[in-house]
Design a protein around this nucleic acid. Sequence first.
DNA 1: GCGACAG
DNA 2: ATCTTGTCGC
Length: 229
Amino acid sequence: MTTVSIPAGWPATEEQARAVQDELRERVVLDEPGPPPGTGRVTGVDVAYDDERDVVVAAAVVLDAVTHEVVAEATAVGRVSFPYVPGLLAFREIPTVMAALDALPCPPGLVVCDGYGLAHPRRFGLASHLGVLTGLPTIGVAKNPFTFSYEEPGVRRGSASPLLAGTDEVGRALRTQDGIKPVFVSVGHRVDLGNACAHTLALTPKYRLPETTRRADSLCRRALRQATS
DNA sequence: GCGACAG
DNA sequence: ATCTTGTCGC
């Protein structure tokens, strides 16, 4: 497992972090469809924390988009680089997540993040930020609607409804299993919303959350226990 | 001013 | 995110 330190010039205050978001937001690419769903490779990234020891562990797991078999995986350990502030999550997770992605032996393909992309107070969530810094196509799949509103989608898997910031559709509430709480999909970088939802459905044949997220989540928890004990 | 608020 | 075992249900 590789170790990372907090990057030089990393924001130290909320004001600095918001300024970085406002600047990097200009570089997000929203007019590409992205890789075709159900083909190539998809990578899940996630992090686990030990706030007592100020440690964060990130995992990146590459899956075959068709079989969902694990093609490669990597982990990285770092220091917590920012407190948790709603809207500034990326500053807490990105350095370690990027180190895990760098440690992969193969290209990640589409990256699926735990959280938001466009669905963000300044339209620049974790998935957008990671996409801009890596150049990779990214999407965000979150478990909660954050501050946004939506109407309950149909009860069947595949049903969706707009995730709204006022009248702007910033993402979609997507039902990935019959009768189960939807997930909240938004675009990150170089993928359109229709494809982001199609990828999410392709990754949820059995469970509410994408296989990518599930695999990355269990790996980073395992790695945290190992790094901590 | 107060409360809500991805992980 | 994290604290946390068994248990109810398909």
